[in-house]
Measured scan of single mutants.
Amino acid sequence: GPGLTDLFKTEKAAVKKMAKAIMADPSKADDVYQKWADKGYTLTQLSDFLKSKTRGKYDRVYNGYMTYR
């Protein structure tokens, strides 16, 4: 089956995709945050998933999740 690194890459891609969806349409934020909360994502995990070469690119999404939880 898929190894943990593959799983991480898949999760990371999914999280980034959802983060971009929030940035494009902030009204989606609560739905996405709820999904992440259901998956039990911690802020540390989210921070790892949303690492970007562009500093602060996903800060709004991260901060939103922090206040959501």
Score class of each variant (00 low, 15 high):
residue 45 Q to E: 07
residue 27 S to C: 13
residue 40 G to M: 05
residue 32 V to I: 14
residue 54 T to I: 11
residue 40 G to W: 03
residue 30 D to P: 11
residue 19 A to M: 03
residue 49 F to E: 01
residue 17 K to S: 08
residue 30 D to H: 14
residue 50 L to R: 01
residue 20 K to A: 10
residue 22 I to E: 00
residue 23 M to Y: 03
residue 49 F to A: 05
residue 51 K to C: 15
residue 32 V to L: 04
residue 60 R to F: 14
residue 35 K to V: 14
residue 1 G to M: 10
residue 59 D to C: 11
residue 17 K to Q: 09
residue 37 A to S: 11
residue 20 K to Y: 06
residue 21 A to C: 11
residue 29 A to I: 02
residue 37 A to W: 15
residue 63 N to S: 10
residue 14 A to R: 13
residue 36 W to F: 03
residue 17 K to M: 10
residue 21 A to T: 09
residue 52 S to V: 08
residue 13 A to H: 12
residue 36 W to K: 00
residue 30 D to R: 11
residue 49 F to P: 01
residue 42 T to G: 04
residue 14 A to W: 14
residue 61 V to Q: 02
residue 43 L to P: 10
residue 38 D to M: 11
residue 41 Y to F: 06
residue 33 Y to H: 02
residue 42 T to W: 02
residue 10 T to A: 14
residue 6 D to M: 05
residue 2 P to H: 12
residue 54 T to L: 07
residue 35 K to A: 13
residue 10 T to V: 11
residue 6 D to R: 05
residue 15 V to C: 05
residue 23 M to F: 04
residue 18 M to C: 10
residue 48 D to L: 15
residue 54 T to Y: 09
residue 33 Y to G: 00
residue 55 R to C: 13
residue 64 G to A: 04
residue 66 M to G: 05
residue 61 V to P: 02
residue 22 I to D: 00
residue 23 M to G: 02
residue 28 K to R: 11
residue 22 I to M: 06
residue 9 K to D: 11
residue 34 Q to A: 12
residue 47 S to C: 12
residue 41 Y to N: 00
residue 34 Q to K: 14
residue 59 D to F: 08
residue 64 G to N: 04
residue 26 P to M: 07
residue 14 A to P: 02
residue 36 W to S: 00
residue 53 K to N: 11
residue 69 R to C: 14
residue 56 G to I: 05
residue 33 Y to R: 01
residue 36 W to H: 00
residue 33 Y to N: 01
residue 7 L to M: 12
residue 30 D to N: 13
residue 57 K to H: 06
residue 19 A to G: 02
residue 49 F to L: 09
residue 57 K to S: 04
residue 12 K to E: 06
residue 9 K to F: 07
residue 36 W to T: 00
residue 52 S to Q: 05
residue 36 W to L: 02
residue 50 L to P: 00
residue 10 T to P: 06
residue 13 A to T: 07
residue 22 I to K: 01
residue 8 F to E: 09
residue 2 P to M: 10
residue 68 Y to T: 03
residue 64 G to T: 02
residue 2 P to L: 11
residue 24 A to G: 07
residue 68 Y to L: 02
residue 3 G to E: 13
residue 26 P to E: 07
residue 3 G to W: 06
residue 41 Y to S: 01
residue 41 Y to K: 01
residue 17 K to E: 08
residue 41 Y to A: 00
residue 66 M to S: 08
residue 29 A to C: 06
residue 60 R to H: 12
residue 63 N to I: 14
residue 67 T to D: 12
residue 52 S to R: 04
residue 18 M to G: 06
residue 51 K to S: 11
residue 59 D to V: 08
residue 52 S to E: 06
residue 1 G to V: 13
residue 31 D to C: 15
residue 54 T to A: 07
residue 20 K to I: 08
residue 25 D to P: 01
residue 58 Y to E: 00
residue 43 L to R: 04
residue 47 S to H: 13
residue 27 S to H: 06
